[in-house]
């Protein structure tokens, strides 16, 4: 890279520096809402302050906003519920998409194409669009106001099936056949041979699934109402909105950070995996 840069003539290099500076400035401006969230969450902001938007770390950090957030919101329960919901969805999904993905990738049966297209219908139909009839279904199944009720519509994922089908197709058949010839049962073959080989696909799907369900709001809002069933996003709006009415911006920032924080940290730590997963999977 360095030798290449040296080849640039002087005006080109100035232009390049200018572009870099411009990009840095842009990224900085782009980050201001998040920077503000960080700063405001630990900054003492009097009610009605006109410089609540200041980004200067010109203050002694306070933990008052976080203390308020924990006092007013049931964050521990919300975290537990969110974990139960996201992991619960993922567990079931991994089973259903592996099985169905395998069937579509490897087997020939009558009506395969038709069935495949029938599956794909769900690809663009994000559940919020069907929110009204889906809520009815949850009620009919007796799952209203329960964590399984939040999870159930996501247990099958056309998108995951599609993804696993593609993944299995890239794995040579020799491995499975060798395993079957060695006397492995079909279930053993899937578990011991195929799943490990399909791991990149499964990990990619997992990250995307976890991220999107951690962030989901409207659906859990509609099918639950007990406080002990609230997930983070619903909990956040339940009291942040009144904090907003009250113009208590420090509390708003702290609570938002508590909800978004885990994913932001996970993203910063496992950036490669996140990015690869998003690319691998495309749709959330």
């Amino acid at each position: 890279m360095k030798t290449r840069r040296a080849r640039f003539p002087a005006p080109r290099r100035t232009l390049r520096l200018l572009a870099v500076a411009l990009l840095c400035g842009f990224a900085l401006i782009w980050s201001t809402p998040l920077l503000w969230m960080l700063v405001a969450s630990v900054r003492d902001i009097p009610f009605g302050s006109t410089d609540a938007a200041s980004l200067m770390p010109d203050f002694k950090p306070t933990n008052a906003h976080f203390a308020d957030a924990f006092a007013q919101g049931d964050f521990v329960r919300w975290y537990v519920n969110t974990l139960l919901v996201t992991l619960g969805i993922l567990m079931v999904q991994l089973v259903t998409i592996t099985l169905a993905g395998y069937a579509f990738a490897r087997m020939e049966f009558r009506g395969k194409n038709l069935l495949f297209y029938l599956f794909l219908l769900q690809l663009t139909l994000a559940p919020p669009i069907l929110i009204v009839p889906n809520t009815l279904m949850i009620v009919r199944l007796g799952l209203y106001d329960s964590l399984p009720g939040i999870m159930a519509p996501y247990f099958a994922s056309a998108f995951g099936v599609f993804l696993m089908r593609q993944t299995f197709k890239t794995i040579p058949r020799d491995f499975e056949e060798a395993a079957i010839l060695d006397g492995a049962s079909f279930a053993q073959m899937i578990r011991l041979v195929l799943v490990p080989l399909a791991r990149p696909g499964l990990i990619a799907f997992s990250i995307v699934s976890l991220t999107s369900h951690w962030n989901e709001f409207l659906w859990p809002l509609m099918v639950t109402d007990s406080p002990d069933k609230m997930v983070l996003t619903v909990g956040l709006t339940s009291f942040v909105r009144s904090a907003e009415q009250a113009a208590d911006w420090g509390l708003v920032a702290a609570a938002t950070l508590l909800v978004a924080g885990p994913l932001l940290v996970a993203f910063a730590l496992f950036q490669r995996q996140f990015v690869n997963s998003f690319l691998f999977t495309g749709i959330k």
């Binding site: 840095c24 809402p33 503000w36 956040l236 938002t256 994913l263």
Partner: peptide
């Protein structure tokens, strides 16, 4: 710089909304 630009992607949309209420 890429990380900075991608950060909003992992935020819940409701969290973005509560932030933007102030923004």
């Amino acid at each position: 710089l890429r990380t900075m630009i991608v950060f909003p992607v992992v935020l819940p949309l409701v969290a973005v909304a509560t932030l933007f209420a102030f923004v």
